[in-house]
Design a binder for these strands. Structure first.
Lengths: 200, 200
DNA sequence: CTTTTTTGACACATCCATGTCCCATTTTGA
DNA sequence: TCAAAATGGGACATGGATGTGTCAAAAAAG
């Protein structure tokens, strides 16, 4: 009577941790480009058998939930490193953009399906008494207070715009319509000035 | 020996034309919010039986293709009315935004799944020797030439941004986070200035 | 009113993704 | 080297969406 899987992958080191991360990354990458991708496709992309995938994530919902959680964590980590509460708002915003661009696949996955986050957030908000700090919103409000960001726009709207513009950039890169280096410049420039030439 | 369906709905007037349009509108609305919606759901939303839906569109692919075509046509019509080649570029762009906002559902449907258009365009490009005039791109180039729009940005990029920002607005309205009147102002303001306060 | 058209509900057969076992083989780690 | 852990492939059952067909009833057209 063998006891299988005493450690369900929460351990980052070891075989299981690595396999788990490979699956999550592959799933994000595949699902970002095709939400209705088959589990077989995902397993293929991860380089594992479909059986193995089912061993780590019993059903599709659990896998998707795990990918969401993992993607949020990865992005949150990058954002954390950006230290948005430090320095001038405009430069902090640029660091935020760079942080988001670092996680292209996960960002495409999360943002590509508006229903995903909407269906997931209420699931975790039960455990978490208060919503996450939302470093992005904090930065936006700070920028508005300093007059660097438009105070006439709703902070939440600005946040949506940031995500949308970055997402557009990631997507264009994915299609090879923009070089990987050029995105950052285009996104920042568009975000800061819109479609108007920088010199007013 | 009754001969059924002598007119497959190409006729705008009459029962078949109206039913066809109802199905197309409902399909766009439902699919915009859930790409994997069931044909039964779509039939329900259209107020017809699933049998009737199958009578108008033999299979799912044909329905989707028809919705794409119909949505493109509807938007194109609105854009046509906007007379983008007339007047100052900035005001033309505002008319373009208004035209797109008029077709919220269809725009969400078309833009929501990047693969849709990508998979459809090559199918019609075989019949159409040249790509459509792309009035939007024309306007952007004109604006750049006059120095109203940033010449340092790729016209195609600007076009993507316009779609993205409008789409974001439509989505926010759909979720009730923005009033239907407020969208236009927010979209135009963001598009023209980015997140920076209008007064440079 | 009569004829024709159109419709909706039901009954099917079918296909495909999914989830569950099982077992031989490989990999890991002591 | 050897035992335990992990894997991959296959077989199998299942459910849900899809496509097809039939038929009586409703709607439209004459």
């Amino acid at each position: 009577m063998p006891i299988h899987f005493s450690d369900m992958g929460t351990n980052d080191s070891g075989v299981r941790g690595r396999t788990r991360r490979a699956i999550l990354a592959a799933a994000a990458s595949v699902l970002a480009r095709d939400r209705s991708a088959t589990l077989a496709q995902i397993a293929d992309a991860a380089g594992v058998g479909r059986s193995t995938l089912h061993r780590y994530f019993p059903d599709r919902d659990e896998l998707v939930a795990a990918v969401i959680e993992d993607s949020l964590a990865a992005i949150e980590r990058s954002v954390q490193d950006a230290a948005l509460d430090q320095g001038p708002p405009r430069e902090a915003m640029r660091r935020l953009v760079a942080a988001m661009l670092e996680n292209g696949d996960r960002l495409m996955f999360l943002w590509g399906d508006p229903n995903l986050l909407a269906a997931y957030e209420p699931a975790v908000s039960d455990d978490c008494p208060e919503p996450p700090p939302q470093a992005g919103l904090e930065l936006i409000r700070r920028g508005q207070a300093e007059g660097v960001f438009d105070p006439g726009l709703d902070p939440e709207w600005i946040q949506q715009i940031v995500w949308a513009v970055v997402y557009t950039g990631v997507e264009q890169v994915d299609r090879g319509l923009i070089s990987r280096h050029g995105v950052y410049a285009a996104v920042v420039r568009t975000l800061e000035n819109g479609i108007r030439p920088p010199g007013s």
